[in-house]
């Protein structure tokens, strides 16, 4: 018994030493693997914002605590957005729910549950009877003092054997500015579709307060993505993203035409003013894009999106209008307070 007690004491002492050493390094949480290059890929570059055709959204809020809104979205001339969709949003502590249904009957639902400030679970579902496949995604994020751990399961199912796509990722701070991460993906389709596949990805992020550099290496295909972000002034941010692939950036097209080395670098800039946000982008293939968003009145926002593809002589233009109708006096007051704060 003495031996076991001694062993436990030794293990505890080692653990305490590791903890005290980590505390002396002043490490901070590095963010999640999913948001490794969020500042460039999600905030500056246009991939999440660009649209074509005409779009109109009408949103009506019913209460603020908990937050509950319904919205109708209309789109014309878009290949991505459905002509009509109805969505609702409910947000409070600890649940956040969002659901939408479009004119083809495709249903999307999302549930976020915040267990505490460091633990978050998400469930997303997509059900349709059209060309888009049905999808269910379960995700669990855990944020530690100096690390982030995430588990994701896409279409998990058990038919004789476990099938689906499973992703585990870990991002760990090694110094107050530098963090290293690894992501493991295991894909097991049903036996009729194809063989199982496992890949490892490696990532790193250097955060020097006014600039951030990240790199991501996909271990199996050799794809490399590097980004650089810098805050040039309180209202201006700029970023660069470089994607290199030895087999081609569009993997499904590469299967048809054969592997071909391909690279793409996009440079973007974002201007954020009190009533408007401007985003501009140019890439190494000669495409130029712009996205402008301007708040015309407290409840009306106008968006303009455009992309010019010079080598292919192609152009895409989009115009959007968003109306946010307050449903109660409390919401009108809140909107006016926000407007006053922005103009101050």
């Amino acid at each position: 018994m003495d031996y076991i007690q001694t062993l436990f004491t030794s293990v505890n002492q080692v653990g305490e030493k590791i903890d005290s050493y980590k505390s002396s390094l002043n490490l901070i949480n590095p963010g999640t693997c999913e948001n490794l290059s969020k500042e460039v890929s999600k905030d500056i570059l246009l991939s999440n914002y660009a649209f074509t055709g005409v779009r109109a959204d009408v949103t009506k809020g019913f209460c603020t605590s908990p937050w509950f809104t319904v919205s109708h979205a209309f789109a014309l001339g878009s290949q991505v957005l459905p002509p009509y969709s109805f969505s609702t949003m409910f947000g409070g502590e600890p649940l956040f729910l969002r659901g939408s249904v479009d004119n083809d009957g495709a249903v999307q639902a999302m549930l976020n549950c915040t267990w505490n400030s460091n633990v978050l679970s998400k469930v997303q579902m997509q059900l349709s009877n059209g060309a888009v496949p049905n999808m269910c995604q379960i995700e669990h994020d855990h944020k530690g003092k100096d690390f982030s751990f995430s588990f994701k399961a896409m279409n998990p199912w058990y038919e004789e054997k476990l099938t689906g796509i499973y992703i585990i990722s870990l991002l760990q701070s090694v110094t107050p500015k530098l963090s290293l991460g690894v992501e493991a993906l295991w894909q097991k389709p049903s036996s009729s579709i194809g063989p199982e596949e496992a890949t490892l990805s490696y990532m790193t992020r250097y955060n020097a307060a006014d600039w951030i550099a990240t790199a991501h290496l996909n271990g199996s295909q050799g794809d490399v993505t590097a980004t650089f972000w810098r805050k040039l002034s309180p209202k201006v941010e700029a970023g660069v993203e470089c994607q290199l692939s030895p087999v081609g950036l569009n993997h499904s097209a590469a299967l048809m035409t054969g592997p071909k080395p391909e690279g793409l670098t996009s440079v973007g800039v974002k201007y954020e003013f009190a009533q408007s946000i401007y985003r501009g982008q140019v890439d190494s293939k000669g495409r130029v894009g712009v996205y402008l968003e301007r708040r015309l009145a407290p409840a009306i926002t106008l968006a303009f999106s455009s992309e010019l593809d010079h080598p292919n002589r192609n152009a895409k233009v989009g115009l959007g209008l968003s109306l946010e109708l307050p449903g109660s006096d409390e919401m009108i007051q809140q909107q006016q307070q926000q407007l006053a704060a922005q103009t101050a």
Partner: peptide, 11 residues
């Protein structure tokens, strides 16, 4: 692989 070197240079 000129696309790779152009991208790297622009980056």
């Amino acid at each position: 692989n000129s696309s790779i070197f152009v991208s790297l240079g622009v980056f």
